[in-house]
Each structure stands twice: as structure tokens, then as C-alpha cells.
Computed example of a mutant assay.
Amino acid sequence: MTSTPTNQPLLKTPLYDLHLASGGKMVPFAGYEMPVQYPMGVKKEHLHTREAAGLFDVSHMGQLILSGADAAAALESLVPVDIIDLPAGKQRYALFTNEQGGIMDDLMVANLGDQLFVVVNAACKQQDIAHLQHHLPDSVQLEVLDERALLALQGPKAAVVLAQLAPEVATMCFMDIQRLAIDGIECIVSRSGYTGEDGFEISVPAEQAVALAEKLTAFGEVEWIGLGARDSLRLECGLCLYGHDLDETTTPVEASLLWAISKVRRRDGERAGGFPGADIILSQIETKSVSRKRVGLVGLSKAPVREGTELFDAEGHSIGVVTSGTSGPTAGKPVSMAYVHTAFAAPETEVYADVRGKKLPMLVTKLPFVPQNYYRGE
């Protein structure tokens, strides 16, 4: 969890009182009081999301609008991603990089037709806003949407539920986004999320967030889900958590995020480079010369291997560290993500985790640990 300085009061999302009324256990997270779990408990919340539909409050995330004719080109100068050719009604995963090639944050960028809609991580929100304000030209306007909440409805029954309130969502595919009314409430809806399941992220005016949440949880398929299960769900599906699996000292190549670097931004593209740290990142892609890589690990014993656990080879040499770990409720075995020396990054390589003085065997495996179930159309 992200700590908050004691001299700064914790912020509350528009759904705070509803979380309390629903039995949410509140904890500090990224400067907010957020629900870590509900009476159902983390494991059952996790499994419910995989089997039906879970509702998450992610209003602590930063929601931004970029407008102006130069908005796409200006944002593209800060990320290794194709923004200029992002079609209207589509969303894309992106990374803010620094001059050393490190990852400052990961984010979502959507083209609403007349504006770009950007969602950034809560812990990086103020840094990202300052970064944009410093680099965007005067021709691009940045609006921070402080008066909006953000809900994520995730799971195999999410579309069936939401289509009863907004029939248009039934025809949306993974990474589609549009403005639409949900039972009369004007929202921005994307078919996306961070659980590996089909689902939607819904930006809603703050004053209508409680009403929308109550409409959704009135469906028998939908339960409130807290941060604990959100973390285990995203980890099982191989999704990184900023500040844990990604940080300013880690490049996209080390993080095994080559898929997040658009081809047109690489050496052979007309719009190659031009983003912070481009020379370093593109050189790493060409030479494949990185000393460590992010990998998935499956435990060969029953004990979960948590963040911060040191990893060793068979001879007892330190070779890496775990950045995320859980018991894997759906996978049925302990799963972790870690950075290891590249010599140990190949699948089926056995490494050893130091858990309370015991060297527990783990096997490097391909990610994700459980299949991603995004809806890409019939």
C-alpha cells in the first residue's frame, strides 16, 4: 500500500460513505481512504469477479482532458506510443518515460473525437499533471476532472448487467470508448479494466456516482470489491502495478513491455523516437542488452512469495527480487512477478525465494498466470 504523510489529511472519494455502509474496511492508499475489502473477504471477492461481476471504486485515479488541434502530437512527444493515429472511439495503454528511459507512470489515453481523455495512477497524479503542464504547448488545454468519479465494473457478467442500463455497451469491444447515458446519467464508458476480465470503466459526475453505484450493486450478479482483490486479480493476469512492478529506474524493455512501444515510434518508423529516453530504450530493443527482465514465477510449494522477497540461484547467488506476489486464488498456486538477471529469465528456469530463511523453489513461467478474457468481438 502507498503511505501518506501524517501531516496531510487523507482524501475521500465521492463513494466513501457508501463504502462504510456496505461494510468496507478502509485503509490509506495513495493519499485516499480506500476500501481494501468488504465482509465477503478478499479471496471470495476475487473469485466472484472471475465468475460474475465486481464493482470497484477507482475514483482516486486522475482523470484529465487534453484539447486543442495539437493535443495528440504534444502528448505523443511524451510517450513511446502512437497517439496521432489513435482512432476516435479507441483507447490505448501508454507510458510516461524520463530522460533515462525509466517509466514515470503508466496510463490510458482515449480519443473522444474532439478531445483526448487520459487516466493516470493516483500516486503519480500530481507529478503527471505537473509534467504535462511543463511540456504541453500553449495551443493545448489541460483540464483536470476533479468533479468526476471513476467506477470499474469487471467480470464475465459485467456486459449483461450494464447493457440493461445502457444497451449501447453490448456492441463495444475491448478498448472501445464513448460518451453515453447509463440510466439517464451522462458518462464516459470504456470497455477495459485492470482485472484481466471483460468489463467497463465508467467516468461519472461525482454528484451522481452514488446513484450509479447503487443501481449497479442492485443487480444480483454485482458485489463491491476492494483493493485486496483488485491486486490479486491484476497480478494473476500479468498486469503491472506502478510503484511495485514499474518505477522510474525501470525501462519498458526491462519491464517486458515491448508491446506497449508502437512500431511507428521505433527506429524504422517515420515518427521514430522523439520521446524522453528514446535513445536508451530503442538501443535496448536493438541490442537486447538489458541486465534484468520482469518475469512470472509460480511457486512449487504452497507458501505465497510476497513483494520484496530476494531470489537466488541453485548456488546461492542473489539473482533478483519479487515485486508482486499472491496466493493465486484462481491459478490455484502461489504466483509472483519479479525482476531477475536475464540469464535466469527463460521459462522453466528454477529459482529460489528466501522466505523466512527457507529457500522455496519457484519456476519462471510465461505471463499471464490465468487467461485474459477481454471481449474482442464475435
Rank of each mutant, 00 (worst) to 15 (best):
M1F: 02
S3K: 13
Y16H: 07
G31N: 13
A71T: 03
L75T: 00
I84S: 00
D85Q: 11
A94D: 01
N98V: 08
V109A: 01
V109I: 15
V109F: 01
F117D: 02
N121Q: 03
A122L: 10
A123M: 00
C124H: 15
D128A: 10
A130M: 14
H134S: 09
L136T: 13
R148P: 02
L151I: 11
L151E: 00
G155W: 10
Q164A: 12
M172N: 14
C173K: 13
D183W: 03
I185P: 04
V189A: 07
V189Y: 08
F200W: 02
A206I: 07
A209E: 09
A213D: 08
A213F: 02
E214R: 12
K215F: 12
G220A: 15
V222M: 14
G226E: 08
D245V: 12
L246I: 10
L258F: 10
I261H: 02
L282W: 03
Q284I: 01
T287G: 07
R294S: 10
G299P: 07
S301D: 06
P304Y: 04
T309P: 07
G316T: 09
G320R: 09
G320C: 04
S327R: 11
Y339L: 02
Y339R: 05
A343F: 10
A346I: 07
E350Y: 05
V351P: 05
V351L: 12
A353Y: 00
G357I: 00
L363A: 06
L363V: 10
K366T: 11
Q372S: 07
Y375F: 12
